[in-house]
Design a protein around this nucleic acid. Structure first.
Lengths: 138, 138
DNA sequence: GCCAGTCTTGGACTTCGTCCAAGTCGATGG
DNA sequence: CCATCGACTTGGACGAAGTCCAAGACTGGC
């Protein structure tokens, strides 16, 4: 759990209480939190932490590749701490819940050159949509 | 080109000049416009049309399944008039340009039951990311 | 041509996020 | 152990994209 903190320190991060708290929140439960949810949980541990700092820190974690940003709709972005194992997402159209999934096959290989239009393709993102068991009942 | 208008009338749409204009804009060039771009083009044909109406009409077209909503990032949603032929998207990380692509293979079949967590999975969306030729040069 | 009821309008409001200037604080060198 | 400097944090203002609403306008059926 302190692996993340170690890595961050190794990357030259000045270790402040705010950054530690944000990192702990993400490292704690492996759910897909919005920035505001991260902020709420961070405030519980460190009441004075500001929204701006949470946004800054999340942005830095994303550009370091320690955390993934997931945009499934026009609502808030979500942050996925499981950045070191490649995976895709299953999203509930009802409540917005997200689960990590591991499909077989490699969609990158499924895009023929003729369909690349000269782009340098570096990444694929697969989003499955459906209803979670709870929302399917309703 | 008036197929769309026909279908809409068939679905009980009251045909107003505003709706006609929005439908024409989408049906015209098959690019992925943002709501504001649709509005701009609509204003060119019908100067009094309001932003709210464009949003309403786009929303209706989406729920009728005549147009697809594409959310690739936290910027504006884009609207894809090519809703009747299944396809996926290739997005430029630089300028945000979007192209329709047709990968081989069926990613829905690539998600084993054990990875579905009881969800009723109805749809997959595959987004390839990379740099378009122009942005790759920069 | 009238009328009911659906559509449109524009401005206020929300949500999510970014920016900034001023102040604070971590960690390195002495 | 302390001073110092520059990286971090703060909160409030700002911005983009979209939603909501009450009032008025228009379409389509009769």
């Amino acid at each position: 759990m302190s692996d993340l903190l170690e890595r961050l320190r190794g990357r030259g991060w000045r270790m402040t209480s705010q950054r530690r708290v944000v990192a702990e929140v993400l490292d704690g439960e492996h759910v897909h939190l919005t920035a505001d949810e991260v902020h709420a949980r961070a405030v519980a541990k460190l009441p004075e932490i500001s929204r701006a700092t949470v946004y800054n820190t999340l942005g830095e974690l994303v550009s370091l590749g320690e955390v993934l940003e997931v945009t499934t709709d026009r609502r808030a972005k979500r942050y996925d701490p499981n950045a070191h194992q490649p995976h895709h997402h299953l999203v509930c159209a009802g409540c917005g819940a997200i689960r990590d999934v591991h499909p077989t096959g490699n969609p990158l290989a499924d895009l023929p050159d003729t369909e690349r239009f000269g782009f340098t393709v570096s990444d694929v993102e697969v989003t499955y949509r459906g209803l979670c068991p709870d929302c399917a009942k309703a």
